[in-house]
Design a protein around this nucleic acid. Sequence first.
DNA 1: TCTATATTTCCAGAATTATAGAAATAACAG
DNA 2: CTGTTATTTCTATAATTCTGGAAATATAGA
Lengths: 115, 115
Amino acid sequence: MAALKIGRAVEGLSALAHESRLSIFRLLVRAGTDGVAAGEIARKLDVLPNTLSASLAVLSNAGLVTSRRDGRSIIYAADYDRMTSLLTFLVEDCCNGDAAICAPLAIVARRAACC
Amino acid sequence: MAALKIGRAVEGLSALAHESRLSIFRLLVRAGTDGVAAGEIARKLDVLPNTLSASLAVLSNAGLVTSRRDGRSIIYAADYDRMTSLLTFLVEDCCNGDAAICAPLAIVARRAACC
DNA sequence: TCTATATTTCCAGAATTATAGAAATAACAG
DNA sequence: CTGTTATTTCTATAATTCTGGAAATATAGA
């Protein structure tokens, strides 16, 4: 898990700071490494194909999703490594040594470790 | 830690999706619950007072920071609870049961639990 | 009250981002 | 080659956000 530069972190946050793109990303996070075809995302979230394509391009440029072609479809998947880097960037060196503050953050990991 | 609605999550991500605001937030995350006076933030990050004020207003409206007056100064502090909610929102129901993917997310908590 | 410090509010021009229609490209099946 | 499905690219308008100067507000001290 590579450390992010601030510009790259901003890019990631910007990509997620949009209701439709955030929904897409969360759908992919839930879907796992197998990913989901663009068309299926469009159907599930009810977005126009060109709009979806633009959204996926933003997420992809930010490094948050990967894609591969499978026949006529293009399969998108969340990049968990990048997601972890982004979250880590936000909490890095958190709270200056006060355990009582940081402890609740463990909940994030516990929730994430759904499995 | 209350669960976030997507609109509120987008608001938080938008607030952080800006280099100067992200630097301010991370400064406050490191500083702990005591917080930092606006003037000191301006000095440390070298931003104009009016620009800083606008940035702090955005972070505050997004619920990511709190403020209190102390004499002539206004002290800002990170809202760790909200930060945790936002991180949780991103990883919720992650990866559909595949432990190998989610495990690295524990790093986030470990890094956060700096103390 | 007068002055200095700390911070915010107001404002307008500049820059960036979002949206959707239409056309283009890619892959497959007959 | 033709037609169909899947997705992207192009393009222009609309909407939002950023920036910094100037003025306003709040607090404290003499």
